[in-house]
Amino acid sequence: MTGEDLLETLRSFMAERDWGQFHSPENLAKSVSIEAAELLECYQWNGDADRDEVAGELADVLTYALLLADKLDMDPEQIIRAKLERTGQKYPVEKAKGRSTKYDRL
């Protein structure tokens, strides 16, 4: 399945349920954050989270992120590649490899 196929599946799923009416950019952004918190909750008390629970919460985060990108007419692949380009300039391999130091302290 390609990214576009997945997006079409999401669009159809939402349309069948008439959920698009609730999908303002604001609501979708809130939902990304809420679902990300639920993903984090999987690891709240130990680092060995249940893989199935993590998969479900991660799917929710990705779903809302893709729906938000679609609502804002943004191509997920394009915006990720652009962000990687900017991040690569801030964190050149020769300075950042193997380090978690923030870019302004490299």
Results as ranks from 00 to 15, higher is better:
Asn46Tyr: 12
Ile80Tyr: 13
Phe13Ile: 03
Tyr64Pro: 03
Ala65Ser: 14
Ala55Ile: 14
Asp75Ile: 07
Lys30Thr: 00
Leu28Gln: 01
Gly47Trp: 09
Leu39Phe: 08
Ala96Asp: 11
Gly56Asp: 15
Leu7Arg: 15
Ile34Asp: 01
Leu62Ile: 13
Val93Asn: 14
Leu84Val: 13
Ala37Asn: 08
Leu72Gln: 11
Asp75Gln: 10
Leu106Asn: 07
Tyr91Met: 14
Gly20Pro: 04
Asp60Cys: 01
Glu16Ala: 03
Arg51Glu: 12
Leu28Ser: 00
Glu85Arg: 12
Arg99Ala: 15
Lys90Ser: 09
Ala49Pro: 05
Ser12Glu: 09
Ala37Ile: 01
Asp18Pro: 00
Ala29Trp: 02
Glu94Ala: 14
Ala96Thr: 13
Arg51Ser: 13
Glu26Leu: 03
Tyr43Met: 05
Leu28Glu: 05
Met74Asn: 08
Arg99His: 15
Ser12Cys: 02
His23Asn: 04
Gly3Ala: 09
Glu16Gly: 00
Ala59Gln: 09
Tyr91Cys: 11
Asp18Ala: 08
Ser100Pro: 04
Asp48Phe: 15
Val93Gly: 05
Leu39Tyr: 04
Ser100Glu: 10
Leu72Ser: 06
Glu26Phe: 02
Asp75Arg: 08
Ser33His: 03
Ala96Trp: 09
Thr87Pro: 02
Gly3Phe: 06
Asp52Tyr: 07
Glu4Cys: 00
Phe22His: 10
Tyr91Glu: 15
Arg86Asp: 14
Tyr43Lys: 04
Leu10Ser: 04
Ser100Gly: 14
Leu10Thr: 05
Glu38Leu: 01
Met14Cys: 05
Ala15Lys: 10
Pro25His: 01
Gly56Val: 06
Ile80Lys: 12
Thr2Gly: 01
Val54Asn: 05
Glu4Ser: 07
Gln89Lys: 15
Leu10Asn: 03
Ser12Arg: 12
Asn27Phe: 00
Arg81Ile: 11
Asn27Gln: 02
Met1Thr: 13
Ala55Tyr: 10
Phe22Lys: 05
Phe13Met: 03
Ser12Val: 09
Lys97Gly: 07
Asp48Ser: 14
Val93Gln: 15
Ala29Gly: 05
